[in-house]
């Protein structure tokens, strides 16, 4: 398994190409699949709707999380230590 992963890493361009190819196949599949039983209008009438939804949702989640982290939700690891005396757990086994 390790060797297979290293093989893929050394042939990264091929791997990326295959992934793009899979995405194209997925979109093609989405275009031909029967959407008449879909739950909502957008699913029925926007081609490959879930591709768009997946891409936008992922981008929004990543960007919003990044923004919230920078806005002050992410703080240094000893943030609470000054007042509580907390310290990191020692390494253990």
């Amino acid at each position: 398994m390790t060797q297979f992963i290293e093989y893929l890493q050394t042939h990264l361009k091929i791997l990326v190409g295959v992934c793009y190819g899979i995405l194209v196949v997925v979109v093609g599949f989405a275009l031909v699949v029967d959407t008449s039983h879909a739950h909502s209008w957008v699913e029925q009438h926007i081609p490959a709707f879930w591709s768009i939804f997946g891409a936008i949702a992922a981008a929004v989640i990543i960007v919003v999380a990044r923004w919230l982290g920078r806005a002050g939700l992410q703080v240094r690891t000893d943030f609470y230590d000054c007042c509580t005396g907390d310290n990191s757990n020692e390494e253990e086994k």
Binding site: V26, F29, V33, T35, F49, S51, F53, G54, A58, I62
Partner: peptide, 20 residues
């Protein structure tokens, strides 16, 4: 349809992940 829906979401979310 469920298969297509899932593959689209996973595939394009993965694409965005590797871009961002």
């Amino acid at each position: 349809y469920h298969l297509a829906e899932t593959l689209q979401i996973l595939g394009f979310a993965a694409l965005v992940f590797f871009l961002l």
